[in-house]
Design a protein around this nucleic acid. Structure first.
Length: 195
DNA sequence: TAGAGGATTGAT
DNA sequence: TCAATCCTCTAC
């Protein structure tokens, strides 16, 4: 079953980030559906410097983060990679969860073709790679996650609290002390986690 | 309107 | 360890 708005609109972004582990992310591009189990996430909140919406800074790029939870926020990083986020919280909050890694489930041949490799092991093990494998680009920015092009389902795997590992987030040294927040969540022992 | 820098990746 | 690469934001 697709997760509905109430899942995303809780005003606790770290809780949503943890609850997304084990869920299944789907995209349907044209007639081609591909999917994967979410195994790594990071929480970003407007109250800390790592977040694009820090101090409620609202720009054309991140304006979708201020929508009510349940929207997709996709932006270009380093001029090369599209990164996919899930907007959380109520209208005007500015919180989001970055999806960093998936375990491939459906449409694996499609993903291999998009990644131009036969290797199934590493096609979705990083935030820039999983978007390419699933066909997510910036045209997905602002799409609702209860729609027919991109959605998240709860049919994945049951995750016990003990399986969730919290650690500092990656690549945000500029955030100073806030870079130490243990807001990166991974599934213990999963081989699809980014490096 | 110009300049700096980034929630990454893959090759060296 | 480093370059690729281009959009976005900030300052002038």
């Amino acid at each position: 079953m697709k997760l509905d708005e109430s899942f995303y609109q809780r005003n606790d972004v770290t809780r949503v980030a943890k609850d997304l582990l084990g869920k299944v992310l789907y995209t349907a591009v044209g007639r081609r559906v591909s999917s994967g189990i979410i195994v790594e996430t990071e929480a970003y909140s407007h109250i800390e410097k790592g977040c694009h919406a820090y101090l409620n800074r609202k720009t054309k790029r991140n304006e979708v983060m201020f929508n009510a939870g349940g929207y997709s926020y996709v932006y270009l990083c380093y001029g090369i990679h599209n990164l996919f986020n899930v907007v959380t919280g109520s209208q005007g909050t500015g919180d989001a969860v970055l999806i960093r890694a998936l375990e491939p489930v459906g449409g694996i041949p499609i993903m291999q073709k998009r990644m131009n490799t036969d290797n199934t092991r590493r096609i979705t093990s990083g935030p820039g790679k999983l978007t390419k494998a699933l066909g997510i680009d910036r045209s997905f920015n602002g799409k609702h996650l209860t729609g027919s092009e991109i959605w998240i389902s709860d049919e994945g795997i049951q995750v016990k609290k003990l399986q969730i590992v919290a650690s500092p987030r990656i690549g945000i040294d500029y955030a100073g002390k806030d870079a130490e927040l243990p807001w990166r969540y991974t599934l213990a022992g999963n081989t699809w986690i980014s490096r």
